[in-house]
Design a protein around this nucleic acid. Structure first.
Lengths: 243, 243
DNA sequence: TCGCGGGATATGGTCTGACCTCTGCGCTAG
DNA sequence: CTAGCGCAGAGGTCAGACCATATCCCGCGA
C-alpha cells in the first residue's frame, strides 16, 4: 500500500564532483562575492577546501572556462592563476556553431532568428549610433567593396559589416547574439559563395544593399534600416541557397 | 632592421591538450561524421588514439558537456558511454545567467533583448500556433491565476507562460533564447516580487495582461500580440524595479 | 523450455601523487 | 647598479589504480 503524498524512495540524483565545484563557483558569482577580474583560489587549495580531488576542480574550471566565465594563466605573480573573465562572445559563437551544425536548431529557424536580431540591431543602430560607430561601419565597406579579393575575404568583410552594425546598436546582448549567429553561419555562407556562378555580380548587389542600409542608419531612419536589413538578409539567403 | 612583410618570430600559441581534443570532436561534428545520438569512443580509447592522457579527454568532454553537446552515462551496453546530445536549453540558460550576474550584459540590455525576442515569439505564436500549443499556454494560466500560492509559485507559473508562448512560436532558436533570458532573470524577479507591497494586486494585473495576450494569439492577431507582449514586459519591469 | 541469479565486462567517476612548464620576484655576484 | 641565476608558486600533464554502475550472458534449477 503506497501513499501518494509520501515522497517515495526515489533515487537521489547522482551529483558528480565537478558539478559541485561548478555550483560552488556559480554561487560565489551569483552572490556577488566573485566579480569580473577577481582571482580564484589556487586549484590545489580549492580542491582541499571543497574536499574533492584536483582533477575535479580542474574539470569544473574547464566547464566555466568554456563558457567564457573563467580564464587561466600559468606562471607566478599577480597575473597568474585563474580569474573571473568577461569573454561571452567567443563562447556564444562556439555554442551556436556547434548546435547549428548538429541541426539542433533548424536552418530556417536560424535564418529567422538572424532576421529578428539584425532588424533590431539595425533599428537600434539607426537610433543610437554615434560618429565612431558609423565610421566603423563605413570602414568595413571600404574593404568589402573590393570583391576580387576572393570568396573568403568577402565573407570576412561581410561579417565585419554586420558585426559593426550590431556593435553600434549599443546593446551588448543583442550584439553578441547577432554576431554569434552570423559567425555560426560563416562556414556555410563561404561554401555557398564559392559554388555561386557569377558571384561577383551578386557581391556587387549585396554591396549596394550594404550602402543603402548604412545610409538609412546615418539618416537615423530606424524603420527603413529595419526593413533594409531584413530584405538584405532574405535576398542573400535566397540567392545563395537556390544556387 | 626589421622587414614588415616578414612574418616575425611571434610566439606560437600554446595549445593545451584538452583544447586539441575539443577541436578534434568539433571537427567530427562540423564534418557531419558525428550526429546527434552518435556515440563517442570510450575515454580510454580516445585518449590513446589522440595521444593525450585520459584526464585531457575528460576535460574536453566536460567542456562540450557544459555546452549541451555531449551527454555521458556510466554502465555497460548500448546505452552507456558518451554521446552527442541535443540539450542546448539548459546550457544557454546557465550561460546567460552567469554573464548577466557578472554584468557582462547590462541589465537594461537584457530587458531590451527580452522585449525583442518575446515580441517575435508572440508574433510567431499568433501566426503559427496550433491547438496543442494554445492549449499548453492556457494550461499555464490556470495555475497562474491562483496568486495566493506564494511568490515562488507565481514566478514559476509566469515563467511557464512565457516559455509556452516561446515554444508555440515554432522557432526553436528564438524559443531557446527567449526561455534562457526569462530564466536568467528568474531569481531577480522573485526577489522583486517578494519585496513588492501589495503584490497580489500586481499579480492580478499581470494575469489580466496574460489573458489578453493569449486572446490575441488565439485570434491570430500578430500585431496585437506583439504589442501586448512588449507592454506587458515593460509594465512588469517598471513596476518591479520602481518598488 | 523457461526463469532467474550472479559473475564477467565495459564504461564513466574519482582520487593520488608525481612531474613538467611557465613566469615573476628577489637575491646575489660582478 | 646591473645582469643573471634560481627559487617558488601557479597551472598543465600524465600514469595508474580503484570505485560505481549498468548491461550482458551464461549456467543452473524448476
Amino acid at each position: 500500500m503506497t501513499d501518494d503524498r509520501s515522497p517515495a524512495w526515489g533515487p537521489v540524483p547522482r551529483t558528480r564532483a565537478h558539478e559541485l565545484v561548478v555550483q560552488a563557483i556559480e554561487d560565489q558569482i551569483m552572490s556577488g562575492a566573485l566579480r569580473v577580474g577577481d582571482p580564484l583560489p589556487p586549484e590545489r587549495e580549492l580542491a582541499s577546501r571543497l574536499e574533492v580531488s584536483r582533477a575535479g576542480v580542474r574539470e569544473a574550471v574547464r566547464v566555466l572556462e568554456g563558457q567564457g566565465v573563467l580564464r587561466a594563466r600559468v606562471g607566478a605573480g599577480a597575473d597568474a592563476g585563474t580569474f573571473v573573465a568577461a569573454l561571452p562572445d567567443g563562447a556564444l559563437t562556439r555554442f551556436l556553431r556547434l548546435h547549428v551544425a548538429l541541426a539542433n536548431f533548424p536552418y530556417a529557424d536560424v535564418i529567422d532568428a538572424r532576421v529578428i536580431l539584425e532588424r533590431s540591431s539595425a533599428r537600434l543602430a539607426a537610433l543610437h549610433a554615434d560618429e565612431a560607430g558609423i565610421a566603423a561601419i563605413r570602414a568595413t565597406l571600404e574593404t568589402g567593396a573590393d570583391a576580387s579579393l576572393g570568396h573568403a575575404a568577402y565573407n570576412d568583410a561581410d561579417t565585419a559589416f554586420h558585426v559593426a552594425i550590431a556593435e553600434a546598436s549599443g546593446n551588448r546582448l543583442v550584439a553578441s547574439m547577432t554576431v554569434a549567429i552570423r559567425e555560426s553561419l560563416s562556414a556555410r555562407i563561404l561554401v555557398a559563395l564559392q559554388d555561386y556562378e557569377g558571384w561577383e555580380e551578386l557581391v556587387a548587389t549585396l554591396h549596394q544593399q550594404h550602402l543603402e542600409l548604412l545610409d538609412a542608419i546615418e539618416r537615423h531612419d530606424a524603420d527603413a534600416a529595419e526593413e533594409l536589413a531584413e530584405r538584405h538578409i532574405r535576398f542573400a539567403e535566397t540567392a545563395l541557397t537556390s544556387a
